[in-house]
């Protein structure tokens, strides 16, 4: 692991943290939950970036990162007495496959307007490739983060209990 790689991972984590703070405040969470979601987003996104650079496929890397966020969020939930989803949801948002979704729509528009049969086939390929990637990343995110909630239901529902 070179210093360049470390720098890239750090920058990635920092930007993910800013993104998570911004998307968290839309849902008006408690103040301390905002900072936790920034930390979780930075760790999760940097982990995913590192896994992708190490050659893992993107949806699998997303799944690993999302389960990592899910596990950590239950730990933090016990610490600050706040339901886990309050900060685990915003910290997932930087991993939402927006660019793939955009390319899916774009290739659909190109297909609709194309008159050349050979080019049209290429656009259909683009459509399915980008669309499937977006779909699988989304599923990996949600299933990954909710696995800990499903495995430890008692724990995740009693985090706001103080006594």
């Amino acid at each position: 692991m070179t210093t360049e790689m470390i720098r890239l991972v750090l920058v990635d984590g920092l930007m993910a943290a800013i993104a998570a703070i911004g998307f968290a405040v839309i849902s008006n969470p408690p103040r301390n939950a905002i900072f936790v979601s920034a930390i979780l987003a930075a760790l999760g996104h940097a982990l995913r970036f590192f896994l992708i650079k190490s050659g893992l496929e993107i949806s699998l890397a997303t799944f690993v990162a999302a389960s990592f966020i899910g596990l950590l969020s239950i730990l933090f939930a016990r610490l600050i007495h706040c339901p886990a989803e309050v900060f685990s949801f915003p910290s997932l948002l930087p991993m939402i496959p927006g660019l793939f979704a955009y390319r899916t729509i774009l290739s659909l528009i190109k297909f609709m307007q194309s008159t050349d049969a050979v080019k049209s086939q290429g656009f259909i390929l683009d459509f399915f490739h980008n669309g499937m990637t977006a779909l699988f990343i989304l599923l990996a995110l949600v299933v990954g983060v909710s696995l800990p909630i499903l495995f430890f239901p008692k724990l995740s529902f009693s985090v706001t209990r103080k006594y």
């Binding site: 408690p30 706040c82 339901p83 706001t160 006594y163």
Partner: peptide, 20 residues
Amino acid sequence: HLNFTIVSELSALSWETYDK
């Protein structure tokens, strides 16, 4: 209208009601 402060505090209130 998303408001996670309400979710978090009502959740804590429900436990407080139960325990106290």
